[in-house]
Structure formats: structure tokens, C-alpha cells
């Protein structure tokens, strides 16, 4: 493989890393303190990591230190203790704040754009990269080949 192609592949790989790593780093599992958590706590963490704090900028209610987020977490805990399901608790907040409160917007209606666009950009970018690499390779090949073939007469003339 040509060094340029290897470089391009490395570049693509490096750019792709955050999309794979970011969701892993932000999962509640890593956000939990090291000490042993009981079942209720782990559910509070799991639900809290799904809900977006309404008074913050793109922060979960688990991460936020705002008193509003803390109160929402208290509500989550109370509802878990009252025996409500995860879906019911998320629904409680969704009812009041809409899609805004969900860290991951549901894939429906206009939200599809959010899910499709990154893929589309990746595909178009890949297509563009392929075209660009192909063209530069052809250009390199054209440069390597002699532009004009010497005729017999030219060769004769060169003979001094």
C-alpha cells in the first residue's frame, strides 16, 4: 500500500475513535463510585444518566450539581422505592419536559435526522476521500510516464 493511503486510513481510524469511546466513557457504570451500590442505587444511576438536566447545558441529572437535578434524582429514587418501572419514571419526566429531558433523543419524526446525518456525512466523506485518492494516484502515474515519446529521429539527433 502507498504511504498516502495508509496515512488516510490512520486518519479515518483516529477520527472514528471518539464515536466509539465517548459512549463507553459516559455510561453510568464508570460514573458510579467504587463502593458497593445496592440495587436501588444502581437504578438511580442508570435512570439519572438517561435524563438531561433542564437547567444545565447537556448535562445528565446524575452529573449536574444543580439543586434542580438533585431534586429530580430524589424523585427518581422515591419512584423506584414506590415500585415504579424505569420506563414509568423516564415517562414521568418526559411528560413534563418532553424530548429535551432525554439524553438520547428517540428516533422518531424529525429526530431521524440526528441519527441519519452522521452516517450520511461519513459515507459522503468516504466517497470524497476515495475520489481524491484515486485522482491523486492517477496524477502521480501520469507524471511518472514520459509525456512525449522520443522518435527515432530525436534519438538520432541526440547522438553527438
Amino acid at each position: 500500500m502507498r504511504p498516502r493511503r495508509i496515512l488516510a486510513m490512520v486518519l479515518v481510524a483516529v477520527l472514528a475513535v471518539p464515536t466509539v469511546v465517548a459512549p463507553v466513557l459516559t455510561t453510568p457504570a464508570l460514573a458510579q463510585p467504587v463502593k458497593q451500590q445496592d440495587a436501588v442505587d444502581s437504578r438511580v444511576f442508570a435512570i439519572g444518566a438517561k435524563l438531561r438536566c433542564p437547567v444545565c447545558q447537556s448535562e445528565t441529572i446524575l452529573d449536574s450539581h444543580s439543586s434542580s437535578a438533585k431534586e429530580m434524582l430524589r424523585i427518581v429514587r422515591e419512584q423506584i422505592e414506590a415500585g415504579r418501572s424505569d420506563a414509568e419514571i423516564v415517562g414521568y419526566f418526559h411528560d413534563r419536559y418532553g424530548d429535551y429531558v432525554l439524553m438520547q433523543p428517540p428516533a422518531r419524526g424529525a429526530n431521524h435526522v440526528l441519527w441519519v446525518l452522521p452516517l450520511l456525512i461519513l459515507l459522503l466523506g468516504g466517497f470524497w476521500l476515495a475520489r481524491w485518492l484515486g485522482r491523486s494516484r492517477r496524477a502521480a502515474a501520469a507524471q511518472a510516464a514520459p509525456a512525449v515519446a522520443f522518435t527515432e529521429r530525436d534519438l538520432e539527433r541526440l547522438k553527438l
Binding site: P54, S67, S68, R96, G98
Partner: peptide
């Protein structure tokens, strides 16, 4: 004081 009624109204700011 707890903001619970506010949450019922979807108050954020």
C-alpha cells in the same frame, strides 16, 4: 421550596 410543583409544570428557568 423543593420545586416539585415546578417540575410538574415543566419549569426550567
Amino acid at each position: 421550596p423543593s420545586g416539585r410543583t415546578g417540575i410538574d409544570f415543566g419549569v426550567y428557568g
